[in-house]
């Protein structure tokens, strides 16, 4: 491992701890306005969607693949359906993986 990977770990550790600790450390001296709390509530959906959608729709990073033969798309749709249907994260992960692997290796699509 070179220095830049250690820098990545150190930097990630620092920002993560800072986010988790700042409010604890200050005790009650800093509070968020309700509006800021409301805004923070949208962060997970916005960030996770922004990460996932390009990976699913452009599996090779360059070309759109909106066909049913796209294992990333099929797996993601299966995960979404299972998450909504069962409300169990583990089921969504396992089922999505199964569909992805079936598409990719079982059907030999890619």
């Amino acid at each position: 491992m070179n220095w830049s990977l250690w820098a990545v770990i150190a930097g990630m550790a620092a920002v993560t701890f800072a986010i988790r600790y700042t409010l604890f450390g200050l005790g009650g001296r800093l509070r968020f306005a309700p509006r800021v709390q409301q805004a923070l509530r949208h962060v997970p959906v916005a960030v996770l969607t922004a990460i996932v959608v390009p990976m699913v729709l452009l599996p090779d990073g360059r070309h759109w693949d909106l066909s049913w033969r796209n294992p990333w798309l099929a797996g993601a749709l299966a995960s979404a359906a299972l998450a909504l249907g069962t409300r169990k994260l583990l089921a969504a992960i396992a089922g999505g993986m199964a569909v992805y692997l079936l598409w990719r290796f079982g059907l030999g699509l890619r």
């Binding site: 949208h42 997970p44 959906v45 996770l48 969607t49 990460i51 996932v52 990976m55 699913v56 294992p71 990333w72 797996g75 993601a76 995960s79 979404a80 299972l82 998450a83 909504l84 409300r87 994260l89 969504a92 992960i93 999505g96 993986m97 992805y100 692997l101 990719r104 290796f105």
Partner: peptide, 23 residues
């Protein structure tokens, strides 16, 4: 073997139920 898809499956599983709430 396609483990890299696990990340997508996990994130989709987290986000999908959140989409039911209004915005």
């Amino acid at each position: 073997l396609g483990l890299e898809f696990a990340l997508v499956a996990t994130f989709v599983g987290i986000v999908a139920p959140l989409l039911r709430e209004r915005p």
